[in-house]
């Protein structure tokens, strides 16, 4: 039975590099926190860094990089459907935030 990839043949070097990259990005987030400037810009930069950290972690710590193509496709499909479902909530939050009137439906 196929039981996924064999990581035992891989050295620890790749994991150490991933570890230090994630630590460096985390440190950058902390440096950004003390930088002055616009809060929205700071928030955007921190969020971008968090996404980069997550992508590096998912690819190399969680081994998506070396998983088979079916697995990758299946996960992308599931993520897409969950994100599409979440669209129900996001526009509603922005509608309330921007002070748009409620629906006339009673």
């Amino acid at each position: 039975m196929a039981q996924g990839n064999d990581y035992s043949s891989e050295g620890t070097g790749k994991y150490l590099i991933t570890y230090f990259i994630i630590l460096a990005i985390a440190a950058l987030q902390f440096v950004l926190a003390y930088s002055g400037g616009d809060m929205t810009r700071k928030f955007t930069h921190m969020l971008i860094l968090a996404f980069i950290e997550a992508i590096v972690g998912v690819l190399f710590f969680m081994h998506i990089w070396s998983e088979n193509r079916t697995m990758k496709f299946f996960l992308m499909l599931v993520v897409f459907f969950v994100l599409a479902t979440m669209q129900y909530g996001w526009p509603d939050s922005f509608r309330i935030h921007n002070g748009a009137p409620f629906s006339s439906y009673h």
Binding site: M46, G57, F61
Partner: peptide, 29 residues
């Protein structure tokens, strides 16, 4: 394989923290 599955969960918990830190802590300094 059971160790690997538990590891996947643990990595996920770690990655979520990367989003919690900037939003909840760093932007509220």
């Amino acid at each position: 394989d059971d160790v690997e599955v538990t590891g996947l969960y643990w990595h996920f918990v770690d990655l979520v923290w990367m989003f919690v830190v900037p939003l909840v802590y760093l932007l509220n300094l």
